[in-house]
Amino acid sequence: MSFLTSLAGGVVIGLASALLLLVHGRVAGVSGIVGRLVDGRRDTVAIDLAFVAGLIGAGVTFGMVAGDAIGPAIMTRWSSVIAAGLLVGFGTRVGNGCTSGHGVCGIGRGSPRSLVATLVFMVTAGVTVFVVRHVLAVTP
């Protein structure tokens, strides 16, 4: 069952990314979109703000329709929350993409750079989970 909902959700993500490409010619990379807003880029601000508003709007809508649409955070220490956020923001900006930009759009258009980036962050994420859960055995 969860395989089917995951596949269906993935198809919807792919269609949403295709819509942004078809209408605006832009890559649906969330870290790139947020990064442009943080940088104060004027030329894309309307599209970028609208996309982010749509993301939050989906969370609001699904939160109302299905009570379990958004899961609770797994982190319990503020030091972990801040460290993880800094790493995600810094890393996606330096690496020029995240799960959506590299993992979906980049691989989807056959970019070797994005394929390598995705493999790298999958591996370091997996190693991090292994160390936290099985070596240190702590709650982050």
């Binding site: 982190m75 972990s80 790493l87 995600v88 810094f90 890393g91 799960t99 370091t124």
Partner: peptide, 9 residues
């Protein structure tokens, strides 16, 4: 670096 933050959070 992104992967470490993703795995942590």
């Amino acid at each position: 670096i992104f992967g470490v933050g993703w795995g942590l959070s």
